[in-house]
Design a binder for these strands. Structure first.
Lengths: 160, 160
DNA sequence: TAGAGCCTTCAGAGATATGTAAATTCTCTG
DNA sequence: CAGAGAATTTACATATCTCTGAAGGCTCTA
């Protein structure tokens, strides 16, 4: 089987997994297409053709992926079409986003504690929750940073 | 406003957030109901009444929450009804589950590398992905373990 | 500044998914 | 061991979501 074919299948497979994990199916397909493509970047038309979806669907997917820091719009010299590219550092961005969720969980725990008080069954449950998310938030941020540094160091002087 | 009311609202609010993050709405509502309740545990009937949902819906939600390690079925002395309780250590379990996803991502990266080879645009993209998830998997597991230990130490001799 | 090309938005169709109600199965008690 | 109570499963109805196709709007060029 040729390389392109294998890559496309890997892309679809991962998209399916991500979809089951809560990401929208089309959004996931667009993301993995950009991740596994052999090109540096793809146009909206490329994505329409490869994934058999309408330009509207591509537009929607892109609108979700860009704020997540997973892809970026690339100015295309000599072409009026937008090009989309999987971003360097995308994974670290994604993980950082999830940090925001950790903070939300911590806040939710606090809110419950304010209502229930510490000395109750509820209080003990929520206290564990608050502790856990406080700990995770605290630990995860430096973890991501340290990876960013490690990666930057490793690739010093390397451009795309 | 009374305490119960505040807790219920906090529960619904968090459920909504979780639902937007990909969890099923009813599953999330059941989970947060058990998290914020002032009782130690609730019966299926309690959940039906409080959330205005059918027993079938409760059954489905419970079936999803138990494998995640978020809630547990509690033998109820003197009652034939099943009682459900939010589990101690639930959050750590949940986070561990997410670790499985990290491993999956790493594997997906490897699969692409096998097809594309290292020396290509695709190869470089996937290499970053593989590195990132390898690093995260490696770091996150001890992190969760260390919290478990910390928590166990803090609560030594404490029973629910 | 007019026009072409491309992206985005919108309304409606189609598909998916989710809850309900009823039938079934399971389990414990008398 | 029969029966009652409860949980689960199933089929169906409903609600939600997501894609498409077309219209609208922007931007760059000539």
């Amino acid at each position: 089987m040729d390389t392109d074919q294998r890559l496309r299948e890997a892309a679809e497979k991962l998209a399916l997994t991500l979809a089951q994990g809560g990401m929208q199916k089309t959004t996931a397909r667009v993301m993995t297409a950009l991740l596994y493509t052999r090109q540096d970047a793809m146009t909206a038309a490329d994505l329409c053709a490869q994934l058999s979806i309408s330009s509207g669907a591509v537009s929607t997917a892109v609108k979700q992926l860009i704020p997540l820091g997973l892809i970026e719009r690339v100015p295309a010299p000599g072409s009026r079409r937008d090009h989309y590219r999987f971003r360097q550092g995308a994974w670290a961005s994604l993980m950082s986003q999830q940090n925001a969720m950790l903070a939300t969980m911590g806040a939710a725990a606090q809110e419950g504690l304010d209502a229930a008080g510490q000395d109750s069954v509820t209080g003990r449950r929520l206290h564990e929750m608050k502790d856990f998310y406080a700990y995770m938030t605290e630990q995860l941020i430096p973890l991501i940073d340290s990876w960013r540094e490690r990666y930057a160091a490793q690739h010093a002087g390397t451009s795309r």
